[in-house]
Computed example of a mutant assay.
Amino acid sequence: MGTLEFKTICVFCGCNLGKKKSYQYATIDLDKELITGVTIGELKPVADMHQRKTEMTRNSDAFIAMSGGYDTFEELFEVINWAQLDIHNKPVGLLNVDGYYNSLPSFIDQAIDKGFIKPNARPIIVSASNAIKLIEKLEAPRHKRVKT
């Protein structure tokens, strides 16, 4: 794929394997796209979950949510909300393996239609079914959102 635009990408994922092998294969494919052969990272003790998420956001250039449960959803929605509040302007992607996240964009569209989310917040997240396409979308120039 070439050199990534991002130096660090925060990946949210479940701690369980899921029922489909495709979730596991997607993890391997994403790993192949992201790992450069250089050991990176730092162990940084934090006081609580809020500080952990703050540090992850501060030290990441982009975010990817893989298949997961409540913890993954909570982390995903926090970075979406922080983008909406202009706390960061980093891309957020859904690795939509086997349609796992299909209902989320339609749910967000419904919230927009009902007036709970402003339409200019819709482009905060991008989605793709595989790692290569998702990273391409995350690296693509994004449309400027109108300030609320």
Rank of each mutant, 00 (worst) to 15 (best):
G2W: 05
T3A: 12
T3N: 11
E5S: 13
T8E: 09
C10A: 14
C10P: 04
C13D: 00
N16H: 12
L17D: 11
G18A: 05
K20I: 00
Y23T: 09
Q24S: 13
T27R: 15
I28T: 14
D29C: 01
L30D: 07
K32G: 07
E33C: 14
E33W: 06
L34V: 03
I35V: 08
I35D: 08
T36Q: 02
G37E: 02
G37T: 03
V38Q: 13
T39S: 13
T39K: 15
G41V: 10
E42Y: 07
E42W: 07
E42G: 03
E42T: 14
L43C: 06
L43T: 13
L43D: 04
L43Q: 05
V46I: 08
V46R: 05
D48T: 10
H50E: 15
R52G: 13
R52K: 15
M56W: 04
M56Y: 04
R58I: 08
N59P: 03
S60R: 04
D61F: 10
A62S: 11
A62K: 06
F63G: 11
F63S: 11
F63D: 12
A65T: 02
S67D: 03
G68H: 03
G69T: 08
Y70V: 13
D71M: 05
T72N: 00
E74R: 00
E75M: 02
E75D: 09
E75I: 02
L76E: 02
F77L: 11
E78T: 01
I80G: 00
L85S: 08
L85P: 07
D86E: 14
H88Y: 10
N89G: 12
N89I: 06
N89P: 00
N89S: 14
K90Y: 11
V92D: 07
V92T: 08
V92F: 04
L94W: 02
L94I: 05
N96E: 10
V97E: 01
V97D: 01
D98E: 14
D98Q: 09
G99P: 07
P105Q: 06
P105V: 11
S106C: 06
I108T: 12
I108Q: 10
D109V: 10
A111T: 11
I117R: 01
I117G: 06
N120V: 08
R122K: 15
R122I: 02
R122G: 04
P123R: 04
P123S: 10
I124N: 03
S129P: 09
N130T: 11
A131T: 11
A131W: 04
I132H: 13
L134A: 04
L134I: 12
I135D: 02
E136I: 05
E136A: 14
K137T: 10
K137A: 12
E139M: 14
E139W: 01
E139C: 09
A140N: 01
P141D: 13
